[in-house]
Design a binder for these strands. Sequence first.
DNA 1: GTCTATATCATGATAGAC
DNA 2: GTCTATCATGATATAGAC
Lengths: 199, 199
Amino acid sequence: MTTEEKILEAARDEFMLNGYSGCRMRSISDKAGINKGLLHYYFKSKDALFLQVFDSTFQELMAGLRNALAQDLHLIEKIELIVDLYSTHFKKNPGLPAFVLQEANRDQNSEFLNHKRKNMSPMAGIFHTAVEQAKEKGEIRADIKSEHLFLSLLSLMIFPVLAKPMTCVMMNKTEEEHQTMMEERRAFVKQFIKQAIQL
Amino acid sequence: MTTEEKILEAARDEFMLNGYSGCRMRSISDKAGINKGLLHYYFKSKDALFLQVFDSTFQELMAGLRNALAQDLHLIEKIELIVDLYSTHFKKNPGLPAFVLQEANRDQNSEFLNHKRKNMSPMAGIFHTAVEQAKEKGEIRADIKSEHLFLSLLSLMIFPVLAKPMTCVMMNKTEEEHQTMMEERRAFVKQFIKQAIQL
DNA sequence: GTCTATATCATGATAGAC
DNA sequence: GTCTATCATGATATAGAC
């Protein structure tokens, strides 16, 4: 494992845990087991390091979605694929969605996000096509708007991960109970959406 | 308007915009139109000021939910009430959910959240009772788990507000188009949930 | 209560020895 | 490439005049 990789891994951990402003270069170098000065040898500034971490994490979050949508499947199957995909992905990386959304809200990153428009905009279009096809085949109700369905799918899967601390408090759950609920949730969301869009 | 109120309002704005670590005492005093030193006269530290702001914002987010659940209404009506409530609330305060969730994820605030367990835990219970009653009356499907339904309701309403920047990029929307979508969403979510839980 | 001035400290970044 | 030492800055917090 090269030093650069060690830095990137440590930086990812720390940025995900504390966000850009809450993260210290010192804690990154400590976690990477190297000297603080070396960070600036590999990455000229905190900003540069952060941007690389954020970019790769963002891509990671989108890649799965992109891939699932590209499959030649029926709409319901695509949805189920996405549910399974994010379910397992977030189990491994619970802090990922909070990190991306939190930092996406930072003014400083809005330019970066706008730069990604060309990469991301096709996705909603692909999903829309799949929805329209399903409507024509009579698989789902005709009054379902694709953009709302798409957004709902993401909401149902991502929000509970995002809001884990609040959820635990509101529902009086321990860490383990929350994990059990998340396991169940996979089946629930599939059933919930199917029921909502079926004729 | 007293100085203390001016400080609290400015602090709320700045904390909501930049989070705890990203917010500077200087920017708070500037926005409040007072001297930096005065902040420490009214609130002994940044931490103390933040905690007060976070607490009131958290209460605000929960109060509506609490109130809606306490009404003597059918389950579907309660759900519609919550949808309308959050829809209008978030239109006025778009940064509110991101702020609360982001800061709820901070380690430092976990103790605070745990302290709120007694206040919050009844809510899920009240919702659960309403769900069970609706099942007995045959208003909804018997296999709907109340905790998942509750979490789904929150997800569908809160996530799109939370993820506005990402949503705009992914769906290639302008600020105005996003707002239009959010207006539509109120009706969509009501219909979506009703369809999902009905017999 | 409100301000100015300052203490104290932590951070990101750089210079330079090895 | 890696480290030590240090700078420059900006932050919270305090002391004290008015």
